[in-house]
Amino acid sequence: MTTNPSAVPPLFTGLCDDAAIFPPGELPLPQAVPAHRTHRTAWYAGLVGPFLCGAGALGALLELVDEPLAIGVIVPAGSTGLAPALETVATEPRLRVAGAEVAADPGMAPAEGARRVVAAFERLLPAGACGAVEIPRGPDLPAALDVLAGTPYRAKFRTGGTAAGAFPTEPELAAFVTGCVERGLPFKCTAGLHHAVRHTDPATGFEHHGFLNVLLATHAALTGGDPRALLAERDGKELASAASELTVPQISAVRAAFTAFGTCSVVEPLDDLIALGLIQAR
């Protein structure tokens, strides 16, 4: 992989969806929107995906929009929340719905909850928008992945949060990645991937997965390997070296599988990639 000083390399293009308004960052919306504009016009703009906005904040977002903005609509309530969310933004031409991320309907088996979201996507998702179904952790996850396999939609998996229990173990995350790869199912992650490399947060003691670990674990799964060792790796130089050795076809395959992750800070992932020599700052 070659690093172009004028662009973000393909392994990282569009990798970071801007979730600045979500915990733990929780940047106020009036600050988050102009900050996103800055990211999208900076030299590293290629790293940055759409602005993620929760369904409950869409009304406030409408009041701040003064030029075109691509958004990802986050709907934690399940399939019944999708129509009201999309209706809120339907009359604002400056907002382009790039995607919708909807939690599998609660109160039922995850497979049935995912099935209901898929049905809602088929009825309501705007043309050109990507749909992702957030699958709850647990033993029923494979059945929910089976529902999404063969559809145009992605799986979404929570990789962290504001409590230690919100972070999946290495075997758990490896099983999700492998499960998606085996089904040819693209996926994205959300929460907890603040840095490139697996680490223990010194302030909270939480064990954070690294997004570079996940990228390389995805490559391992695609090539018949075991992702667990790569998810556990804490040596940034080793991970950076492995990433640099990926070929163009391998990079394309990895990013077709692991499409993006939501992060409340675009700057932290960028700084890590610069420090690891995987992106050259301009």
Rank of each mutant, 00 (worst) to 15 (best):
T2F: 04
N4Y: 02
A7D: 07
L11H: 02
T13N: 00
D18S: 04
I21H: 05
L29F: 12
L29D: 10
L29P: 02
P30T: 07
R40S: 03
P50W: 13
G54S: 10
L58G: 06
L62T: 14
L64W: 13
L64N: 06
D66G: 13
L69R: 03
I71H: 15
I71F: 14
A77C: 02
G78C: 11
T80H: 04
L82T: 01
L82S: 04
L82D: 05
A85N: 02
V89M: 07
T91E: 12
V97Q: 15
A98R: 12
A111W: 12
G113T: 05
V117E: 01
A120P: 06
R123Q: 12
G138T: 09
D140C: 10
L145I: 11
D146L: 04
R154D: 11
A155K: 06
T159G: 11
G160L: 07
A163F: 12
G165R: 02
F167Y: 15
F167A: 01
A174Q: 02
A175D: 14
T178P: 05
E182M: 04
L185W: 08
G192W: 09
L193R: 06
H194I: 00
T200P: 00
E207K: 10
L215T: 15
T218N: 00
H219F: 14
A220K: 06
L222V: 10
A229S: 07
E233P: 00
R234P: 06
E238L: 14
S241C: 05
A243C: 07
Q250R: 06
S252D: 09
A253I: 12
T263L: 11
D271W: 08
L276K: 00
